[in-house]
Simulated assay, not measured.
Amino acid sequence: MGKILRKAVFGLDPEQAHRAAIRSLALWGSAGAPFGGGPEAATPVTLAGLTFPNRIGLAAGLDKDAEAIAGLFALGFGAVEVGTLTPRPQPGNPRPRLFRLVEDEAVINRMGFNNGGIDAALARIARLKRRPGVLGINVGANKDSTDRVADYALGVTRAAPHADYITINVSSPNTPGLRDLQSRPALDELLAAADAARGTTPLFLKVAPDLDRAGLEGAIRAAIDHHIDALIVSNTTISRPPLAAAQAGEAGGLSGKPLQALARAKLIEAREIAGGQLPLISAGGIDSPDEAKRRIDAGAVLVQVYSALVYHGPALVRSIARALA
């Protein structure tokens, strides 16, 4: 049955399949998730004053508009991160913009922060009857913004009453110039504004795996200076390791198995630089319980997955949670 379902899903355009998955999860959640419970029971983990039911979270990007939170928690996630959300709605980049690299167990996307705007998403979050795990809200800037720092501050202000934590996303490669905000002094200005806007809500910072050591060190020092509670290492990569799929030349951020070695190496580098002063969350290429264990051994407190669900299915969530218990 799993092979038949996968064949049917892979017969759809990737973005159509993504929308179908979100609709199915939303319906499942609204029905009370009759065939699944909440987060997989495991040893709880405390980070930034929050209690995570287990160590596995959903990375931002799957549920951009906070439509399927209940259904996603029912898959077993201890944390679900929605977004990226921008102050105003925006359509994102022209299609096609999402590509499966089946031979490589990878995905390339150049979505461009397509979302219905933060206010619409927060209205859906406010209607949630139950939140069995930790909810993160990932915020970004509009593509045509004339003041991106103000966009982030507004996103943090709006999200703070609704989020267990907020992630500052300055590492997407699909909004022109956005990654420049990872460099000081731009990052200092942005994080100072976000810190002032958050109230008591924990703030996480998500960085790209393409930062060199000096860039990563600058981002970590800025995060520590501005009281960021955790660093997510990492987002998609613009680098291209050897790939077999015909879509390998598509522009955008690469995720999935080919990102595995780079994401793990950047986690180790971040651990060395941070020296225990900043908790680390690992994302990128985590596709098995063994790889998740490697990330914890390399210094991560929590892990996040997304692209691996495309190739390994939702059962991966509980298998990782159990392995890390």
Rank of each mutant, 00 (worst) to 15 (best):
N142P: 00
L262Q: 05
G92M: 06
T236H: 00
Q304L: 09
P314C: 04
G253E: 04
A123S: 15
A251F: 13
P185G: 05
G2E: 14
R131E: 13
K7W: 14
V305S: 01
T201C: 14
L254A: 09
R158H: 05
Q304T: 01
I118L: 09
V207S: 11
A325K: 09
K257H: 09
T46D: 13
R221Y: 01
I220G: 10
P14F: 10
I137T: 03
T46R: 14
E81F: 11
L27H: 07
L190R: 05
G2K: 08
F52K: 02
R179H: 06
I118C: 06
P87C: 05
R158V: 03
H312V: 04
E105M: 08
I224T: 06
G256N: 11
L47V: 15
H226G: 01
L262V: 09
I273M: 05
A222C: 10
D147C: 02
K206R: 06
D297G: 09
I168W: 09
G38R: 13
G140D: 00
P258R: 08
N138T: 10
P258D: 14
R264W: 01
V301Q: 10
Y311H: 08
H227E: 10
G36F: 14
A106P: 03
V149Q: 01
A17H: 14
V310E: 06
Q16Y: 08
A21G: 15
P34H: 14
L259Q: 05
P132W: 11
I268H: 04
L190Q: 01
P161G: 14
G249E: 06
P242L: 12
G136I: 13
N138M: 13
P91E: 02
G78W: 04
R6A: 12
D119Q: 15
A298L: 03
P242T: 14
N142H: 00
R100N: 04
L259M: 13
T237P: 04
P242R: 13
G140M: 01
A325R: 11
K7A: 15
S234Y: 02
E67L: 07
N109L: 08
V310A: 06
I125M: 11
R130C: 14
G38E: 12
G49K: 09
A308E: 00
A106S: 07
A21F: 12
G299K: 03
K293I: 13
V82G: 10
G32S: 15
I166E: 02
A106M: 05
G133D: 12
E269D: 13
G32D: 12
I168D: 10
A31L: 15
A321Q: 05
D144Y: 06
D13C: 07
V305Q: 00
R240V: 12
H162K: 08
